[in-house]
Design a protein around this nucleic acid. Sequence first.
DNA 1: TATTGTTATACTCTATAACTATA
DNA 2: TATAGTTATAGAGTATAACAATA
Lengths: 158, 158
Amino acid sequence: MDMEARLHADHGDELRLWLRMLTCTQLIEQRIRSRLRERFATTLPRFDLMAQLERVPEGMKMTVLSKRMMVTGGNVTGITDQLEAEGLVQRVPVEGDRRALLIRLTPAGRKVFATMALEHEQWIVQALGGLSAREVETLYKLLGKVKQHVKQSEPEGA
Amino acid sequence: MDMEARLHADHGDELRLWLRMLTCTQLIEQRIRSRLRERFATTLPRFDLMAQLERVPEGMKMTVLSKRMMVTGGNVTGITDQLEAEGLVQRVPVEGDRRALLIRLTPAGRKVFATMALEHEQWIVQALGGLSAREVETLYKLLGKVKQHVKQSEPEGA
DNA sequence: TATTGTTATACTCTATAACTATA
DNA sequence: TATAGTTATAGAGTATAACAATA
């Protein structure tokens, strides 16, 4: 085997791994999406936004939320509009910067989210039920490496 | 700790793992999508459809393609229409069943795909470059378990 | 009756870019 | 000038369901 062939030799392994990552994620994600729709008439981005807020009672600025959710700002505005209209989140002025807003869960939003989150967690546990606690940990660590490396090698900007 | 608390005790691990899976996949997927757009003016589903066909020179029926791509039939028709209009795939009648069609890559499509696939593979290798060959293998195996378990516990139908 | 593929539709999610109001 | 958030737009991606032709 010459140098160049060797250079590309086992790249098929990475490709196979990527395709499997995609398949697993899509399988689970599709199920979560349809259950969120059926059970709670909501969507994954809406659930995701609420999940982000749930950890930070004082609220979160749009910019931060946008980065966390990995989508651009306009989208966060749209989802926030929906949830605010339903009384699940509220926009709160930020002292000292009149441009900024904190988005936070309302008490009603917190209650609704708690119900959804409980069931959501069960779906996940069920989906990942084929793994031992040790395997879950191993996967978590290895994907941590992937995440770190990908973020590090970001194509600039982001 | 009582029984019920123990029952739910380490479910947080599964949830954390799921969120990390989602993050990793989205990070890489977003990058792939934007590069496919910039470099080849195409989309992930279009690339995916061609990738499925590339392995099967004689072509693949719409139904099979639909299952492989994990989307419903109407979408496959749409993407196929686009690619056929560009001369990258063709619809071929199936002997013995006049309802069915085989979709296959044209020689032009095969050529175009080869170019894209080469670059695409490099993107993936780059994204997963933080892992050793051994870690790639471990991840692949563990995700294989996940995939198997999820498919097994399918909510019927599919 | 069931299956294959198509059509029509509607909705969610998304990025982009122009815009405003503050800083 | 730069930043925070909004608005407007266009397109990707998807599921659903009714449909025609064939099995």
